[in-house]
Design a binder for these strands. Structure first.
Length: 495
RNA sequence: GCCAAGGUGGCAGAGUUCGGCCUAACGCAGCGGCCUGCAGAGCCGCCCAUCGCCGGUUCAAAUCCGGCCCUUGGCUCCA
């Protein structure tokens, strides 16, 4: 069973074959640290994370690089705002550290390196020089532009035709560019306050005319263009040709198209072999975005729903489809996650119970374990179909519940296998928190107190005093302790 | 206008690569039953889909071809 992926470059589903047998070079188009990350960004991270985890699970050595764009007009536009800082560096640092917190909160596997633009200006300048030397770029008033007409394959990723782009060109009369689609590799001087005026809060003080960082270059002081950074950092930390480049669908044109043009023009090699584009998160008909203001930040979402519900939410839609965010969708994700968690806990508990110490072989249950692994693997190999893989896990939950529900005695071996499947597929691959609940074996004071209350409640029930017993259950629920009565007595879990 | 991705039940969302096991998955919501002092959880069952519209190919189409309508994204900073 081999992995196949939908490659935007060809528009087709293709068998995945990395350049080197057991190594995958993965680049994820990171974000511009000019605002708090929202759930749309997190979806890209989560999907890329599951890809990373699945590739690792399948035995590949994944070399994952994900950039932070910390040089950008929008960052400059926020200088002086609240307590963000008085320089581009300070504002970028503020949001970068927040993003790192968000990523850790989301339980993302670490990338090998998180390169920043500000630390790669020499590499960027080298790349731009190469392009100028090779005739793919030209200098104009201290700025350098990529000449799209010099790159034969321009438009191959997005199927854009140069003459169509041209027809849409705004007023190009005063432009420094030779062609409307030419894009900046290097921008002369500092940021022009006029260019960021619309991004800047009205009540903030004026910025003087030399704002933002600049660096010395063969063309004078200036700043790197947006698109070059990914090319430079990808080639610096990975290789001229990488295996997988992941990004949001909104970046296909012009960003990724330009990355291909400048990289391949510079090296003569293919830049990325598989382009995977993640669909956008929609809220009420629009994409979630910073500029529309219709977003929920990652930090707030983690606070409100918890990492497992958020990750379950992302594992409910294939990466390349759009996904809808809303209260109903989150509630569904919560139900899905809790269903998995309860089944997992039921399996763990059943393993420990005396009913599991008999020789029992539940053939149907064992069969479902095999099916779970087969279905999960098949789904993930079909273009990382997390929704189908999740369905397999949920069916395992049903099988576990049925076995525990119906059997007088348990099939210990099969239950162990089920526990392992949850931990391996749900835990290692989906990044969900299986195996963390009460795993250290210590009993907390809170747990002892709950046991105490449950003893009191049991006595009340014994005495037929159900009203009082129900009150105690409600009171515990109000504190976040979910009580479940069963034949074997009550059990509880913290929400 | 041009490019791209989509339009599947009340909601959400797989399946479209390679047409038949799709009498359309998984789940949420809803409705019955079992279990329970009750509730929840769980189990069993049910409900809801002529797969955007029209035409074509085929023994056979959600899946292929043609046309049209609509939605979203991009063409300016954007995951």
């Amino acid at each position: 069973m081999t992995l196949s992926v939908t490659n935007t470059l060809t528009g087709e589903r293709e068998e995945f074959e990395p350049r080197n047998d057991d190594e995958v070079l993965l680049y994820v188009c990171g974000l511009t640290v000019s605002d708090d990350a929202h759930l749309g960004h997190a979806r890209l991270w989560a999907q890329a994370d599951v890809m990373h985890r699945w590739l690792s699970h399948e035995g590949y050595d994944v070399r994952h690089v994900e950039n932070f764009t910390d040089v950008n007009e929008k960052i400059v536009a926020r200088i002086g705002e609240d307590d963000l800082g008085e320089s581009e560096e300070a504002v970028a640092e503020h949001f970068t550290s927040q993003v790192i917190r968000d990523m850790r909160g989301l339980n993302l596997k670490r990338a090998e390196v998180y390169p920043r633009v500000s630390e790669h200006v020499p590499e960027i300048i080298d790349l731009v020089e190469t392009l100028v030397d090779r005739g793919y770029a030209y200098e104009s008033n201290g700025s350098v532009y990529f000449d799209v007409t010099a790159f034969e394959d321009y438009g191959k990723l997005s199927n854009q035709r140069l003459d169509e782009i041209e027809s849409q060109g705004v007023d190009e009369e005063r432009s420094e560019k030779h062609h409307p689609a030419d894009f900046a590799l290097w921008k002369a001087g500092a940021v022009d306050p006029d260019d960021i005026a619309e991004h800047r809060h009205a009540d903030l003080p004026e910025i003087d005319d030399a704002c933002g960082q600049t660096w010395a270059s063969p063309w004078g002081e200036g700043r790197p263009g947006w698109h070059v950074e990914c090319s430079a950092m990808s080639m610096t930390h990975l290789d001229d040709t990488i295996d997988i480049h992941v990004g949001g669908r909104d970046l296909v044109f012009p960003h990724h198209e330009n990355e291909i043009a400048q990289s391949e023009a510079a090296t003569g090699q293919q830049f990325a072999r598989y382009w995977l584009h993640v669909g956008l998160l929609q809220t009420a008909g629009d994409k979630m975005s910073s500029s529309l203001g219709n977003f929920l930040t990652v930090a707030d979402a983690l606070e409100e729903y918890g990492v497992d519900v958020v990750r379950t939410f992302y594992c409910s839609t294939a990466y390349r489809s759009e996904q809808t965010f809303g209260e109903d969708e989150m509630r569904e994700a919560e139900e899905r996650w809790e269903r998995l968690e309860r089944a997992y806990e039921a399996a763990v508990e059943a393993c420990d119970s005396t009913d599991a110490y008999a020789k029992v072989e539940d053939e149907a249950f064992r069969e479902s374990l095999t099916e779970t692994r087969e279905a999960f693997t098949a789904a993930m190999n079909e273009d990382f179909n997390v929704r189908e893989a999740m369905a397999a896990l949920l069916e395992l939950a049903t099988a576990v519940n049925r076995h525990v529900d119906e059997g007088e005695q348990y099939d210990f071996w099969a239950l162990r296998e089920a526990v392992e499947a949850f931990e391996e597929l749900g835990g290692d691959v989906f990044g969900l928190s299986f195996g963390h609940a009460g795993s250290d074996g210590t009993v907390t004071l809170a747990e002892e107190l709950v046991e105490l209350v449950l003893d009191i409640r049991a006595a009340e029930r014994e005495a037929g005093n159900y009203e009082r017993a129900d009150e105690l259950r409600d009171d515990l629920a109000a504190l976040g302790v979910e009580v479940q009565d069963s034949d074997d007595g009550p059990s509880f879990r913290f929400e």
